[in-house]
Simulated scan of single mutants.
Amino acid sequence: MTQTASASVPNEIDVRSLVPMQRHATIFDLVGRLEPGSSFVLINDHDPKPLYYQLEAEHPGAFSWTYLERGPEAWRVEIGRVADVAA
């Protein structure tokens, strides 16, 4: 998959240095700015599976979620916005 993230969304975001209450706000801001077909890699210090469930509940089928690394030091997940489909 070719990564075509817009200039306003970094290719990778490491939230391990953020306080927990800032993490979801930062991640959801980035997710909201993703263009269809683009993605970024989230780096976290624990499995961000609850974030996946929240994304899926709020935007069913709109985002892809691919684990690239599953701990124990870091979890890396590629989060992408699914390309728009014809209505």
Results as ranks from 00 to 15, higher is better:
38 S>H: 05
30 L>P: 08
84 D>E: 08
81 R>F: 02
37 G>F: 03
24 H>D: 10
51 L>H: 02
37 G>W: 02
1 M>N: 03
33 R>P: 01
76 R>S: 08
64 S>L: 04
46 H>C: 11
84 D>K: 09
77 V>S: 08
25 A>H: 04
29 D>S: 12
82 V>A: 07
76 R>F: 06
49 K>H: 15
53 Y>S: 11
79 I>G: 04
24 H>T: 13
73 E>S: 12
36 P>R: 00
58 E>N: 13
67 Y>C: 13
66 T>A: 08
13 I>E: 07
71 G>C: 13
81 R>D: 02
1 M>G: 09
2 T>E: 06
26 T>F: 03
51 L>Q: 03
10 P>F: 02
13 I>A: 05
53 Y>L: 14
83 A>P: 00
34 L>N: 00
35 E>H: 00
49 K>W: 14
32 G>A: 07
81 R>T: 04
78 E>R: 08
31 V>M: 02
47 D>F: 15
85 V>S: 05
40 F>A: 04
43 I>H: 02
51 L>N: 05
57 A>R: 11
55 L>C: 03
78 E>L: 05
27 I>C: 06
34 L>Q: 01
29 D>R: 10
34 L>S: 06
19 V>R: 13
14 D>E: 02
67 Y>L: 10
11 N>T: 12
22 Q>Y: 15
12 E>H: 09
34 L>G: 04
62 A>E: 12
22 Q>T: 13
25 A>E: 12
87 A>E: 13
69 E>H: 09
18 L>Q: 09
16 R>S: 15
23 R>N: 08
72 P>W: 13
5 A>N: 09
22 Q>L: 14
61 G>F: 06
51 L>C: 03
64 S>Q: 00
85 V>R: 04
20 P>T: 12
78 E>K: 00
5 A>Q: 10
4 T>D: 01
65 W>M: 07
74 A>H: 12
21 M>W: 12
8 S>I: 00
79 I>M: 05
27 I>T: 09
12 E>C: 11
30 L>M: 07
36 P>W: 02
82 V>Q: 03
28 F>Q: 09
26 T>K: 14
48 P>K: 06
81 R>G: 01
67 Y>N: 10
81 R>C: 06
8 S>D: 08
85 V>A: 08
61 G>E: 07
27 I>S: 05
79 I>P: 03
41 V>P: 01
53 Y>G: 12
8 S>A: 11
75 W>H: 12
23 R>C: 06
43 I>G: 02
1 M>Y: 06
9 V>N: 00
35 E>T: 11
38 S>V: 07
72 P>Q: 14
22 Q>H: 15
50 P>Y: 07
30 L>S: 02
40 F>S: 02
66 T>F: 09
76 R>G: 05
42 L>E: 03
49 K>I: 15
69 E>D: 12
74 A>I: 11
37 G>M: 00
8 S>P: 01
18 L>T: 14
74 A>P: 04
50 P>W: 05
15 V>L: 12
8 S>N: 07
9 V>K: 01
